[in-house]
Amino acid sequence: MKNSSRRGFMGKAFGAVAGVGAVASLYAMKRSWDPLPSVKAAGFTTLDMTAYKENELVVEKWRGKPIFVLKHSKEMIDTLDENKSQITGESLGEIDKKRLVKIGNDYFMVTIGLCTHLGCIPGYNPDEKSFLCACHGGLYDDTGMVTKSPPPRGLDIPPFRIDGMKLVLGEEGPEYKKMKETGITL
């Protein structure tokens, strides 16, 4: 019947217009769930890197997450660990430093202190120079590299920018971008 199909058309057209409005309101609803500007503005932490002592783990806070800062001693840098080399197949001497952040003449491990397995906080053993995650026994070395599974990858490195002797967490500097490109961190 011609008549009823035309009626159907207008009803559908009205439904479509109402649908457009509903979708537009979904956009406003989505925006309402975005993190607030004040939350985003608070997403930057500046660390004064002159304050840390060698081989002493300090836990800072950035975006509500624990940040491990570990200043490497000369001895730690110089230690050549054959095991690590075997895991990654890279030449000795290279391996330690590429996960570290160089500020002045010092090397620092700066990572998010959450196990990449399921998010527990690993504990540091200064004698062994390793991090043990108590939840499922994951083990990391003093650069945050995994030495024993289950963690799928090394500790994640937060976005950072080097500003003289300061480190700004939350901003992406060239050193961080390079780490990301080379796949050292996610």
């Binding site: 406003a28 609803m29 925006r31 309402s32 769930w33 975005d34 607030l36 500007p37 004040s38």
Partner: peptide, 13 residues
Amino acid sequence: YTIMQEVGYGWLW
């Protein structure tokens, strides 16, 4: 403050 000025479209709600 929070609803009227920070939340996206909070003022609209």
